[in-house]
Design a protein around this nucleic acid. Structure first.
Lengths: 256, 256
DNA sequence: CGCCCAATTGATAGTTGTCAATACACGTGG
DNA sequence: CCACGTGTATTGACAACTATCAATTGGGCG
């Protein structure tokens, strides 16, 4: 459906701020910085020893504007991506037109893990805010001639981490009551911000109520009501997308 | 909660009355057969070329009786497991005592993928029927001295496949209506059986209504009602755990 | 400033969960 | 071999929750 790089049909970002239809990319400035393998390891929070091979290699950064996608569903697999900054969501679209938000991503997350298997991306990952990602080219770690280096261990580890995350998400989106789902979602977000070095107590949601609802498998109205309720209970304070967790323990203990 | 190795404590099997024999597990004695890397590749349906290294290696088979677990949640990671026969479920247990069935497994599936990340298994995998698994020891593919062989590519690929599966499961368990979830669950099971070379039209469910409901995030009564409805509609025929898909297309098209 | 979409809130209908009773299947023990 | 017990599965009635429809407010961006 659309591409992630380069020059474009100029039309750009105007039409639908929150739509599933993705926009072409606005012309990006060619100031692409780059990272070394060590940088990437640090970003992923991988604590393995620094490798000897592929050490001098530079991975270019790539900007993705809000609403743009890093890769589209079904697109040929061309590598994994590490989030350097910003916020994104992964969406699976079905034959019938419905779609599911399966995860949200932040700094340090690995994108495109499902592409390794079928050589095509199984979902579309869209930026919720202007973001920066680092591509780890597929041929770097799938070339038959490539050396056996630390990048490989790192990717094993990171892919496994993504599985762990999906399992954690399962808990969130399968809570019996909608308010509990929303409560756990907020805690999940809080932890993500904490892992990024931001405040786990005060943060700004990057996604719409609709996205949250889609992710939690409830309607956007239900999300709104749940947030209002938690607000009235004094457990959180919420204004639009700005959240303050007034009582994180109460939020954790909340079971309806 | 349970052990993964036999010589069993004799009792073991007693608690699981329903053991629809998926496949004829003839009484195996304590001879543990073993598989080569090529065998494992074939089991996983990995179509890569056969490697040169680690080729002579033998992976021992391991029996798991119905109700026993292959590994427990939180247990130190000691390798990945490939299902050779039988049927299993993976369960995450929470602090509050609640648990979630996050997936069902059959022949050719890879177990324990979430253990790579934290060096501990993130879930417990329990046999629903007497099963056989093959352990791929952790040190085989994480040893710093190990050669870069095909096993590595295979595991990448297989772990990625598990992620794809989890995403597919998302679709199933997040359908808006319960009957649609059940319908999709049956189709999912059908495909699993087909992939195993069994009939996709007639098969026997290996799990309880409670397990299905837990997996789909609905109550067991709702599962039962949904199955009864599909039965009355003439789309399926179900008696206890024996299912016949009378009209698979109608099942696919079913949206309530 | 004005438009478009996001978000909140209310009223109502529909689906699902809960509680309960019964029938059924399987393994055990007489 | 059959009766029995335990846990599974089905079905009903009712309460509770959530989706839907609708109207309004508020925020962001051109």
């Amino acid at each position: 459906m659309q591409l992630q790089n380069f020059p474009t049909t100029g039309a750009a970002h105007a039409t639908a701020p929150y739509s599933p239809t993705l926009q072409p990319v606005r012309h990006q400035r060619h100031v692409c910085e780059s990272s070394t393998l060590s940088d990437v390891m640090a970003l992923l929070r991988f604590d393995g020893r620094t490798g000897t091979s592929a050490q001098g290699q530079a991975f270019r950064h790539q900007r993705v504007r809000s609403g743009q996608s890093v890769f589209a569903m079904g697109q040929p697999f061309n590598g994994l991506y590490v989030v350097r900054s910003g916020s994104l969501k992964s969406v699976v679209t079905h034959d019938d037109g419905n779609d599911n938000v399966i995860s949200f991503h932040m700094k340090g997350d690995l994108l495109g893990c499902d592409g390794v298997y079928k050589k095509h991306y199984g979902c579309e990952t869209v930026a919720l805010t202007d973001s920066e990602v680092i591509r780890l080219p597929a041929d770097e770690f799938f070339s038959p001639t490539r050396r056996c280096d630390d990048m490989e261990h790192m990717l094993y580890w990171a892919i496994s981490r993504e599985i762990t995350r999906e399992q954690a998400s399962y808990t969130v989106s399968h809570a019996p009551r909608s308010e509990v789902r929303v409560a756990r979602f907020l805690l999940q977000q809080s932890e993500c911000f904490a892992a990024m070095g931001c405040s786990p107590r005060r943060f700004t949601l990057t996604m719409t109520r609709r996205d949250i609802g889609n992710y939690l498998s409830v309607t956007l109205e239900t999300v709104s009501r749940a947030l209002s309720l938690l607000n009235h209970l004094g457990i959180i304070e919420i204004s639009n997308r700005d959240v303050t967790l007034l009582d994180a323990d109460a939020l954790r203990a909340y079971e309806g």
